[in-house]
Amino acid sequence: MTDISTFDDSREGEFGDYVALLKPRVMSLVVFTALVGLAVAPVHVHPLLAFISILFIALGGGASGALNMWYDADIDTVMRRTKGRPIPAGKIAGGEALGLGLALSGISVMMLGLASNWFAGLFLAFTIFFYAVVYTMWLKRSTPQNIVIGGAAGAFPPMIGWAVATGGISLESVMMFVLIFMWTPPHFWALALFMNDDYTKAGVPMLPVTHGRRSTRKHILVYTILLAPLALGLGLTSIGGPTYMAVALVLNAMFLRGAWAIWKRDEAQSEADGYKVEKRFFRFSLAYLFLHFTALLLEAGLGHWGLGGW
């Protein structure tokens, strides 16, 4: 739970501090995947309405980030990766972060509902609740499956984008969700392998902390093997096509190769080279997701000109 004892009340938070509170890097992923979900949907949305809808989805993502930082300030203070965040660094008070998160939550949900449809607005509300309450307040500190179940929050944005256009859910939007949902565990477990000391100090039950690095390596390989056919399966839906399939084949072959390399290594090798293989896999996992969704955009663009699809 948040601890505001480090807050320096003699200093006012700067604009950049409040931006950081919204987790802009995470928000960029939310915006991009939601935009793709909207763009590949079979219903045309006016560009201005699309822009407004994505803006409020982004605000909802920022609201989730602020609520997460408010609640997690105590463990953020302990971890090297997060101790520079606005609240543990004493730049913004915990109460300010909570107020901002709640305000942005209400604004984003109401305005998305009014701008597009209430199904999309309520879907955004559920996503914020899932990330802030189900993941941050419950799963993160209680189970090593935190990132598996909690990863659903990061997988909802393309479904919300699709709902903005169509007012509902379909196989295509569910498959986009599944792609992100199955990608999330190997992505974060690779990070946890070389940040294990931080999670141990903070008392966060990430898989390497509770089951050891050897078990985590096996889990990364298993999830990557399960992910590959699901990623390719998305290419067989109405929003897929040969361009997406070609990109997916290459990316999943490379991802599997990286997971296999992680599985083969022991801790002595990893510690000797500073976890280079694990860090490389983590960085590639970001490109993996971005390129899959970029390929979906390309398919949509080619389809517009009568050149895409099967």
Rank of each mutant, 00 (worst) to 15 (best):
L49M: 15
K276S: 07
P205S: 03
M254S: 07
T237A: 03
E271F: 13
V133Y: 15
R265T: 04
L49K: 15
M176P: 03
G306P: 14
N252V: 09
E12S: 15
G94H: 12
V134H: 04
W162V: 04
L35S: 03
I147C: 01
L289C: 05
Y244L: 07
A248G: 03
H211D: 08
S285E: 00
L22R: 06
L29M: 08
G99D: 09
F119N: 14
P186A: 01
F255N: 01
L234R: 03
V19Y: 08
E14T: 15
L232E: 09
A261V: 05
P47T: 05
A73C: 12
G62Y: 06
L286M: 12
A155R: 07
G168H: 05
F284M: 12
F177P: 02
A20V: 01
T127H: 10
I75N: 02
M27Y: 04
R11N: 10
H211W: 00
P205L: 04
G90Q: 11
D9G: 13
T294F: 12
S215P: 00
A63E: 01
V250T: 02
K83H: 09
F282L: 04
L221M: 13
V43F: 00
P205G: 03
R213E: 15
M182T: 15
W183P: 05
M79S: 05
A39Q: 01
T210M: 13
A93V: 12
G121H: 06
I87A: 05
L139D: 02
P158F: 05
D198I: 06
L298W: 13
V222F: 10
M79C: 08
F255G: 00
A120K: 07
M176G: 06
T243M: 01
G274E: 07
S108T: 12
T136P: 04
W118L: 14
H219S: 12
A268W: 10
G167H: 11
H304W: 13
F177V: 02
R217N: 06
M1Y: 15
A192S: 08
E271S: 15
S173P: 06
S53P: 13
V43W: 00
K91S: 11
A73T: 08
V250A: 04
T224A: 12
R81L: 10
L291C: 01
T82C: 11
R217I: 08
M79D: 02
A287C: 06
V148L: 14
T184L: 01
L98C: 00
A39I: 11
L38A: 09
W310P: 15
W305K: 14
W70T: 14
W162Q: 04
L249G: 08
A287E: 00
T136W: 03
M137G: 10
K91N: 15
P88G: 13
A228K: 10
A253E: 02
L256V: 07
T237I: 01
T184F: 03
V164F: 08
F51K: 09
S28R: 11
I180T: 10
T200E: 14
V109N: 11
A272L: 08
L114E: 09
A132C: 09
E14F: 06
V247C: 09
P24F: 11
L122P: 02
V209Q: 08
A259P: 06
V277H: 06
W260I: 15
T294H: 00
S238L: 10
A272C: 04
T33Y: 11
L22A: 04
I87P: 02
F119L: 15
G301H: 13
I180F: 05
G240T: 07
E299C: 04
R81C: 12
M111W: 12
I4Q: 15
R141N: 10
N117V: 08
